[in-house]
């Protein structure tokens, strides 16, 4: 195996240039090039580029696959292989908002399954519950909502949790979740428990792709609740601390070469 040359340097690409009227214009290409420049090898930019593609179209389309293949000199099959591996890449156009309900064991037992079931019913039409990765409303239109059941979202102390466009809504109940989606459908943007002020799925996908451009207001959105700091608060209340550090702890000597 050649350590220096990545395998794809020696493989064929079948991507052809996209037509001039493709949704991936100069602006997207410029962003793609900035992302690629961050990495020692261009292929590392593929995951961010697929997020970028989703920020343009709300899902990964065949054209999006071709766009990535073109930018990175990959075959379209190589890009498809990656796009179909990761759950965050959607194959169908997403709604304005993506609502992800954690239904992993712990959230499920505390109400996650009930929340997901309730939302499916509530967002379904004519008695047919909405399915995983299905959309209420028309993708691309205001108030449209795609729902999914998600695996552990790493917020178990706030169980049950759900996310809207990956911003956290903690300690939910079926009732609070219904209220939340109803507000979303009305075009409102209720603030997440933890996260930036709510935008929409495509905006967040762009932030995931080009995170270095995020605006300060979003950065300063809340990140902690009582649960997060419970231990730290309890320690403060009780006066518990870690042992005091010595004033000037010496580093070990340079180890002798064996």
């Amino acid at each position: 195996m050649t350590a220096e040359a990545p395998e794809e340097a020696g493989t064929a690409s079948d991507a052809v240039p996209l037509p001039a009227d493709s949704p991936f214009g100069v602006d997207t290409t410029a962003k793609a090039q900035r992302i690629i420049a961050l990495y020692p090898q261009s292929r590392s930019a593929l995951l961010p580029l697929l997020h970028l593609v989703q920020s343009v179209q709300g899902f990964v389309s065949q054209q999006g696959v071709t766009f990535c293949a073109n930018q990175l000199g990959l075959s379209t099959a190589e890009v498809s292989a990656v796009a179909t591996f990761y759950t965050m890449y959607k194959r169908k156009p997403c709604g304005e908002h993506l609502v992800s309900v954690c239904t992993n064991t712990l959230c499920a037992v505390l109400g996650g399954d009930a929340i997901y079931g309730k939302l499916r019913e509530h967002l379904g039409e004519s008695g047919k519950p909405l399915g995983h990765e299905e959309t209420a409303g028309t993708p691309g239109e205001r108030g449209s909502i795609t729902i999914e059941h998600a695996e552990c979202l790493a917020a178990c102390d706030f169980a049950p949790v759900l996310q809207v466009n990956y911003e956290y809504y903690d300690n939910q109940t079926p009732e609070s979740a219904v209220e939340l989606v109803d507000a979303l459908r009305r075009g409102e943007k209720p603030a997440p428990t933890r996260g930036a002020p709510l935008t929409d799925f495509r905006t967040v996908e762009e932030q995931l792709a080009v995170g270095f451009d995020t605006d300060p207001e979003a950065v300063n959105g809340p990140s902690a609740s009582a649960e997060t700091v419970r231990g730290a608060q309890l320690a403060t209340d009780r006066g518990w601390t870690a042992p005091t550090m010595p004033d000037d702890a010496a580093l070990p000597p340079v180890p002798e070469k064996r």
Partner: peptide, 26 residues
């Protein structure tokens, strides 16, 4: 050097395919 056939999907749904067979919306 022709990576036109690839693994698609994940886990038990994993399958061999091409970008033409990948279930990516058209």
């Amino acid at each position: 050097g022709d990576p036109f056939i690839e693994l698609l999907e994940r886990g038990a749904g994993q399958q061999i395919g091409t970008s033409a067979t990948a279930e990516i919306a058209t």
